[in-house]
Structures are given as structure tokens and as C-alpha cells.
Amino acid sequence: MDMNESDTSGQPVDPPPAAGDDAWWSSTAGDLDGTRPLDARSVMAQSSLPPDRRPGDTEPLEELEGPRETPPAPLAIVAAAMRHIGQVRQNNQDSVYTLISSVPRDEGDATLGLFIVADGMGGHDGGEIASRLAITTIARHIIAELLAPALEGVINVSLQALVVEAVQEANRAIWDQARLTGSDMGTTCTAALLLGRSLYIGHVGDTRAYLIGPAGIHQLTTDHSAVGRLIEMGQLDPSESRDHPLRSQLYRTVGQHPEVSVDLLFQPIGDATHLLLASDGLWGCVDDDHLARIVQGIEAPNRAVRSLIEAANRAGGPDNISAVLVRLA
């Protein structure tokens, strides 16, 4: 292209500096902030660094290459868990679990949390066994597959798949155990894995996960009951769910079939201040706004959890009551 040939010398054409330019980069660009005409040779010089350093070269990198990102402080989270037999039941078939760990990372440590509520069902001791098996199987799986490698600095597993597999493994464990003992036991299970500032929630049944923040309380999970499904479809009013005679009838549970399909949610926590996992013994007795008021009104999660359980007991405590409350900020 003839008319361009003369222009290929590489001389940049200096545009006038942008007046009143306060773009984000101007403050960090130092002498390149647009106030000084640029010499093409200086550009050339910049790129004359030896480009072919090999992998494994011990020369530090980022230190050479400009500012290093200040690592964000890991989340200072606090969790409290409680399960209560309630006012009517003879035994407590719920199980709860919490784990909080920091995970070392070059770019700044991250927080790893695992929170589970399982609400067991089945005759004799089946409910207790099933819910306990659920939390232990899931915790063991996630510790082995995620936490242990993470402590070595490697997180390469697909987190959604990990959480789903953990719940499915619990399903198999309970199913196998049930076949062995001739039990009809099963459990709900809501397992929330927190990594960094994102939640991965595996969910089967009608234990709920809520996020609570400045915008109020938000139910993350969908109950696996026909009633829950009808609410999701807009055919029943959510307020009806607490009183519907078939509220507790689940179409999906952990441990009562050889296979289970697990709902998985990926949820960045954003500006939420609390994560709440609640069995139906809690959310069935205390409405969402009341839950949020208690959680937001009490600073310490352990006292807030106690207050939640008390509220359900005051409402009659017809079922076991379980909650895990995590203060995220």
C-alpha cells in the first residue's frame, strides 16, 4: 500500500494530551500520564528486556514488573451452629456441621468454610443415623478432595462437581447402610461451601439456605416438596407453604434412592452479611422477616442462633430445630 509506506517508520503521531483527563490509569501511570510527549525510542527500550527467560527461572517476576496487588484481607467470618430437639419430638434427628479454615495462596490467603444442616427421617434411629452419615460423609469428602490439596496450594477441582459428588456420596452411604439394616431412613441435606467470596451450595430436601444483607433476607434454595415447586411456579403463595398439610412431603431426599439429583447453586456473597442454614423446624415456625430481624439484631452469631432456636420453640417447636449462622462481614 504505497500511500502508507512512508508512515511505517514507527514514529508515533503525538496526539494532544487529553484535557482534564482523570482516567483511572493516569494516577498510576507516573510519567506516562499524558503530560509529556512520548519518545518512540523509550517505548522500544521498554520492550528490549530479554523476552525468553525460561520457566523455572528463579528471577522474581512481579516485583520487577510494577506494583504488586495488595492482597485483599481474607474474610473474617464467624459461625455458630445449634440443634434442638424442640417441644414435641422424642429424639433429635437433625445434624449440623461447621468448618472454617484459611487457605494459603500466593496472592493472599483465602477463607474456606463448610456448613451443613441435615434433617433426618425414618423410623427407629434411622433419622439420626442418616443425618449424621450425611454430614460426616460430606465433610470427609470435602476435606480430602479440597481442603487437603488447598493447604498444598492446589485448588484445581471443579467446585460444583465436588459439592454434588459429596452429597451423592452421602446418598450412597446412607442407601447402603439402609439396605443393610432394612431401614427406610433418609435425610435432607443443605451443604454450603464458602471459598473466597463465593458460595457453592449443594441442596436436597427442604432445609433452606438464606443470605441476609442490606437488601433483606433472600432464600437461595428451593424446597424439594411439591408445595415448594408450586410456589416456585407461582401457583401457591409462599405464605401458604408454612401451613400446607403436605409441606413436609419431599420428592427428593438423600439416602432413600440409589441415585440422587443434587441442586447446586453458585452464589457470590456480594454485600451479604450473613448466611443462614435452617431446618424446617426453624423456618416452618419463624417467618423470613423475623429470622432476618433476629440475625441482624444480635451481633454475636452464637447468641443469634440461640435466639433463633428460642423463637421456634416459642412457636411450639413441633419439630427438631437446627440452624447454622455464618457472619460474613
Binding site: 503525538d14 496526539p15 498510576t28 501511570a29 506516562l32 521498554q46 520492550s47 512481579e62 514488573e65
Partner: peptide, 17 residues
């Protein structure tokens, strides 16, 4: 990262490949 007006470098980041 290059200044689009003048073709000057704002920053660069080095990887291994």
C-alpha cells in the same frame, strides 16, 4: 496495557510462555 492515544506502555505483566 498500552495507552491508546500515544502507543505508550502503561504497565506490563510477565508470564512464562
Amino acid at each position: 496495557a498500552i495507552d491508546g492515544l500515544r502507543g505508550s506502555q502503561i504497565w506490563k505483566y510477565r508470564t512464562w510462555m
